[in-house]
Design a protein around this nucleic acid. Structure first.
Lengths: 196, 196
DNA sequence: GTCTATAAAAAGATAGAC
DNA sequence: GTCTATCTTTTTATAGAC
C-alpha cells in the first residue's frame, strides 16, 4: 500500500514534470496536470499541497541525484582532465533519467529562486559550480588546461553548452548521451579548427 | 507629434521587454507593465491590442535587426573562419542593444511558436540557422574546420553557448562583448587543452 | 483516491469620461 | 493619453460526499 501510494505519487510527479518542462511552470495549469493524469483538478490536492509543492519535489529529487553524481566523480577522478570528461559525461547521462527536471531547472530556477521556498536552488547551484571551478582551476594549475583562459568564463561556457542541450537532446534519438558528450569534449578540448 | 507617439510606444516596449526578459512572458502581468510605466493597466490598451501584441512587436524588431546583421556579415566575409568570427562577434554585440529581446526569444520562443500568430519565429530561426550551417559546411569543405565533427552538432554547440550567455552577460560589466566573443572563439577554435 | 461543487483571487480586456 | 469602473474568464484551492 505504501508502495502503491508512492507509485501514484511518482506517476503524478512525472506527468507534471513533463508538462512543466514542455510548457513552462507558469503556463501549465493544475487542470492540465489533472487532465493528463485522468483525474479532476481538485483530486490533485489530495496528493500535493499546491502547484509549487509539485515542482519543488521534482527539483529536489533531481538536484540530490546530480549532487551525488558529481561528488562521486570528484572522489573517483583526481586528475583534472579525467574529472572534466566524467563531469560532462555524467551531466549528459542525467538527461536520460532527469530530462524534464533539468529543463525545469534551466528554465524556471531564476524565477523560482526569488521565493524563499526555493532559496535552496541558489545554494545547490553554487555547490555544483564549485565542482566545475575546482576541476578547471586544478587543471590550469597543473598545466593541463590553457592558462590564458579565464576559468569563470570557461565554466559558464561549459555549463551553458552542456545543460542547454536538454532543449534538443532526445534520449530515444540515434545519438546517445555518451556519443554527444564525446563530441562535446572533443570540441571543448581540441577546438573546431583543423590541421594541427 | 508622430515622433512623440513613437517615443512613448518605444518606451513602453522597452519597459515591457525588460519585465518579460526578467520574469518571463507568462508571469508578467499587464498590471505590472502598466505599474512600471506609471500608468494604469487599462491605459496600455490605448497603445497595444493585447499582451501578445507587445511581445510580438519586441521580437519582430529584434529578429529583423539580427537577420540584417547576419546577411551583412555573410556578404562581407567570404572566408569561413572570418565569417564565423564575425557571426559570433555580431551576436555578442547584439546583447548590448537587444539583450531583453534575446532573453525573451531564448526563453519563450518554444512556447510562443505553438500559436499561429508566432509561426514566423520558426521561419526566422531556420533562416538564422542556415547562415551558421553554411559557414560551417563551407569551412569544413575548405579544410579549415575539422572534418570529424558533425556540423549540426557544432552548430547547436555554438548557438547554445553564444545565446545562453545572455543570462549572465552584463552590457555594463567589465567584460565587453568583443572580449567575451574573443575568448569564446579561442575556446571554440583552439580548445581548452594546453601545450600543443 | 476521486468526484461534485464552489469559493476566492487574479488576470486580460473593454467602454466611456476627462 | 490616461483614468474610472467594470466585465469576463481563468486559475488556484477548499469542503465534504462517495
Amino acid at each position: 500500500m505504501g508502495v502503491v501510494k508512492q507509485d501514484r505519487r511518482a506517476e503524478l510527479l512525472a506527468i507534471a514534470g513533463r508538462l512543466f518542462a514542455e510548457r513552462g511552470f507558469a503556463t501549465t495549469t493544475v487542470r492540465e496536470i489533472a487532465d493528463a493524469a485522468g483525474i479532476l483538478s481538485g483530486s490533485l490536492y489530495h496528493h500535493f499541497d499546491s502547484k509549487e509543492s509539485i515542482v519543488d519535489e521534482i527539483l529536489r529529487g533531481f538536484l540530490d541525484r546530480l549532487r551525488a553524481s558529481y561528488e562521486r566523480v570528484l572522489a573517483e577522478r583526481p586528475e583534472p582532465r579525467a574529472a572534466l570528461t566524467a563531469l560532462v559525461t555524467v551531466s549528459f547521462e542525467s538527461m536520460d533519467t532527469d530530462g524534464d527536471a533539468i529543463a525545469i531547472f534551466q528554465n524556471e530556477a531564476a524565477y523560482l529562486s526569488q521565493f524563499e521556498r526555493f532559496g535552496y536552488l541558489e545554494e545547490v547551484t553554487a555547490e555544483l559550480q564549485a565542482c566545475w571551478l575546482g576541476v578547471l582551476e586544478r587543471g590550469q594549475a597543473a598545466g593541463v588546461f590553457r592558462a590564458d583562459l579565464r576559468v569563470p568564463l570557461v565554466y559558464r561556457f561549459i555549463r551553458d553548452t552542456v545543460w542547454v542541450a536538454v532543449r534538443w537532446y532526445d534520449p530515444k534519438g540515434t545519438l546517445g548521451a555518451e556519443e554527444i558528450a564525446a563530441q562535446y569534449l572533443t570540441i571543448l578540448c581540441q577546438g573546431i579548427v583543423a590541421l594541427r
